[in-house]
Amino acid sequence: MSYPKEKLLEMYRSLLGDRILEERLIELYAQGWVPGHIHSGVGEEASYTGVLATRREGDCYKFTHRNVSAYSDVGVSYRHIFCEILGRMGGNSEGKGGINHIADKDKGVIGMAGALGCDIAIATGVSYALKLQSSGNMVYCFLGDGTTSRGPVHEAMNWAGVWKLPILYIVNNNEFSISTHVSEGCSIPNPGAGRAAGYGMPAKLVDATDVLEVYDAAKELSDYVRSGNGPAVLETKGYRWRGHFEGDQARYRDAAVANEWHKRDCVKNLESYLKEKDLLSDAEIEAIREETKAAIEDGIAFAEKAEQPKLSAIYDNIFAEPYEN
């Protein structure tokens, strides 16, 4: 398939931005800036970038605890993201939600539930609201291979199939739910794509280290979903480079296998492709890298200086105002 240059560069910028953010987050956590836990998605960026390159104005998104960099791909500013991660003013929740609840409704972000999987049905509910608008918009709902074992996921997928809702479920299969290998959690090889037929959904399986392969499949499935055919599943097969959360040494798995996966780097893969096609030079790569880094550092510096929430506001936002419509 051939791609417009602008599309390729857009994907490259997004991929690189996500990589830098995921790496920088590890440092921030190590320095003690993050109140909770972080789940680095370094190495898995293409599953988000490739899919989100098919989005349209008015679409909605349900992300996960891993790859919080995805929020920047849909337009949430780095300042906002880092303020929320640090629990400061300047994010969305005024210090109450944190890294797992980065959100911006105007950008279509749905939010996230702490018990993984429960929010798959919430995202499905959003797709019902979009369907009634008849706008051709859809929901992109991301989840991991471990989450596919939760009951609510199956309730949601079954429901979406019956109501023919406009939602694409992206199962990011990185082989591990904390320490448990996917083969111990699911009796078939592909926990997303393999189960889709049971809910009347088409599915595709792609290499999560090849952003163009991810994009092609996401394009085909999102076109299908937007056309009113109902939901679909895209499973991206990759590998979790780091532990479940920072501090997890991942001693439960074979380091040699992990090292092999590190060689299949989605950012480098796209860089090689772009250089081969003469679409991007080393100097341009360096310029994009510096520009992206500067934007991320600005976000971090802003958040580090941002105000702490006032303790007197602890009861704010339990209820919406006005209470009644």
Partner: peptide
């Protein structure tokens, strides 16, 4: 709906947050 109480509540949340009542 299907017999899916988890999803009945959750679909309700999603639909409510994004414009329905």
């Amino acid at each position: 709906t299907p017999v899916s109480e988890n999803a009945i509540a959750a679909v309700g949340v999603g639909a409510a947050v994004f414009g329905l009542r």
